[in-house]
Design a protein around this nucleic acid. Structure first.
Lengths: 344, 344
DNA sequence: GAAATGAACGTTAGCGTTAACGTTTCAATC
DNA sequence: GATTGAAACGTTAACGCTAACGTTCATTTC
């Protein structure tokens, strides 16, 4: 069985079955207009010829496709994988295929991907976050294709939106830290402008402490390969400058890196320093000391977003942007009692 | 700026620019045959009309596409993300776009994805591992499209192959453990038949200990949500049955879960028990105790595989399957001296 | 000054599929 | 036995684009 130069097309199946092209088309798509006997025979021959339909021709003829285009910042980490799993399951059961690309947090890469996506006439497009190039927004607003922005929340999306309020998340953490008596906060994340969600959370945190006329939030933004290493190194930086009494991290992985750093330095958590993560990741389930973190309903977000987009694809009117609830998970890496261990 | 029902097509651009359709096509593709003045004018108008080319029509006309279809088991974890990054960078610079789907280790899902891919006339297809449904293999062997199998190694791939020898990796770990005097090995992984690479490594490990007439390898294969939890629970299982003197894990994340379990039980590593991971993942960089593990060159594998596939796409003859080297990273979670702490 | 050259542009004919409409067949009805 | 009607099937004309080939027209060449 050599590699054929010219794969079988619908005409070949038709000729072999002694019917017209349309009968084959109907048989293969499972639509009405062919007798059961013929349909079975046609399917048999198609399989025998290893016939594979040409989606390009199909999409051209019907002027749409059953593709959902998805843009993510990165495949690294569980966060987007979780959202993705929620979405993909939903789309798959509805008969849509998802094609994914990552931007590595570069709006220009996102624009290039959106261009390519649009050229495939997809049924819908999903972007992560709100930080798009202006051309991306123009292009999508001018197109009839439904667009979902996910993970971040805004009341004025391109089309529809499901996410969480990252600024509010920052506030939530700040308020909790304040209530426990922490006064010298630190924040470890990636370089500014890279992940705008992290920037929003930092802003929320800052504003809470500013309103309380507390010390301003120290931040470290090292650039490392992995979240773990970033958390470790950022913590070192903060401890070396003005040591904070609590450090908040971009995510649980970084917080773990920070925990390791504190351990290496002989600092005890939470009596010497408090640590707060974000996202409630899998790692936390095996740690001896429960991590204080914020639960984000990523899978639910994926499912909700996908359902809303599907509805939109099926002609339902825009639903308002949705913001999913946040929950602070109080663990053992922050004090239990206000002021205990603090020297305000 | 409302949402247009009918997006601009090449004809609209042509009419507006007062030239023929072909001139627009040439101008947009950057091929010869249009004066620079006209080209600039055409590009201006195309941008103004927010013209987006129709890839379906293009692919139909030229009977191919610049798509590379990729099938992965899962997006979870760093392993496939690393391979993917290596590949995608390579393809992107060569002007190819990659479309990815995951199978969740289900060969039928893989088959469905391959079917869909073939219907897009992709330039190449990449599958993870060797565990395909027979129909998948038939379909791909009958098609003229180059296929790369990655991550696992075989001397008889569908087309070309770049991977590591997982059986050999298991042997490597086994030989090292034996040389250090370990005699009661355990292995923690996912349920059998799920991840065939893990099964191969276990087989390699088993054969080494069998040849040494040592105790047979105990294995635990719990089913948990995350690698961390799986490692933790699997370790508990093994410790509760016949406690091994060394436990090998599917990957470093599981090994970390195991380490946490040992800590929780008051076992000291490596004097009470040895732990061995796999893949040398990012997590290891922040652990206070360096993990004994096996380095896999995942990024390099991605780059190598992508380059080989590109060459094949450009008509180069099949290169033989490649097996990348493995390196045992000796850490502090296994004994340094033979027999030390053992009671053989 | 006629012929040859070649860049710039246009025309035509598909690529493989499906929507829309047309034709045939055959059984049911009067 | 003519009439109706519906199911089964075929024909035609797109869908938007590009390869291949034609045409035009200004230069160059002899």
């Amino acid at each position: 069985m050599g590699r054929r130069k010219h794969p079988a097309k619908i005409e070949d199946v038709a000729r072999r079955a002694g019917v017209s092209i349309m009968s084959v088309s109907r048989a293969l798509r499972g639509v009405e207009g062919v007798s059961e006997a013929k349909r079975a025979e046609i399917l048999r021959i198609a399989r025998q010829l290893k016939y594979v339909p040409n989606s390009n021709a199909r999409s051209l003829a019907v002027a749409n496709s059953n593709l959902i285009g998805i843009s993510l910042p990165t495949f690294a980490g569980e966060v987007f994988a979780d959202i993705l799993n929620g979405m993909r399951r939903t789309f798959a059961t509805a008969g849509y295929a998802s094609v994914i690309d990552t931007t590595e947090y570069d709006p220009e890469a996102e624009l290039a991907w959106v261009r390519r996506l649009l050229s495939w006439q997809p049924a819908g497009i999903i972007l992560t976050g709100l930080d798009h190039s202006s051309e991306t927004v123009e292009l999508l607003k001018a197109s009839p294709i439904p667009v979902l922005e996910i993970w971040d929340y805004t009341s004025e999306p391109i089309d529809i939106c499901v996410g969480i309020d990252h600024y509010r998340a920052g506030q939530l953490i700040g308020e909790h830290a304040l209530s426990l008596g922490y006064r010298r906060p630190g924040f470890v994340s990636t370089p500014r402008g890279f992940d705008t969600r992290a920037d929003s959370r930092l802003a929320g945190l800052r504003d809470v402490f500013a309103r309380a006329r507390s010390a301003s939030v120290l931040s470290a933004r090292p650039q490392c390969d992995s979240s773990f290493a970033t958390g470790y190194q950022g913590t070192e930086e903060l401890l070396d400058t003005g040591p904070p009494d609590i450090i908040c991290y971009l995510n649980d992985h970084m917080a773990f890196g920070g925990l390791m750093c504190c351990q290496a330095r002989g600092l005890s958590v939470p009596s010497d320093i408090g640590l707060v993560g974000f996202n409630e990741l899998d790692l936390a389930s095996v740690l001896p000391k429960k991590l204080t973190t914020v639960r984000t309903l990523r899978r639910l977000m994926g499912i909700t977003g996908a359902s809303d987009l599907l509805a939109r694809i099926n002609g339902v009117a825009r639903v308002p942007a949705k913001s999913l609830p946040l929950e602070l998970i109080v663990g053992e890496t922050t004090r239990r009692q206000p002021g205990a261990g603090g020297e305000v």
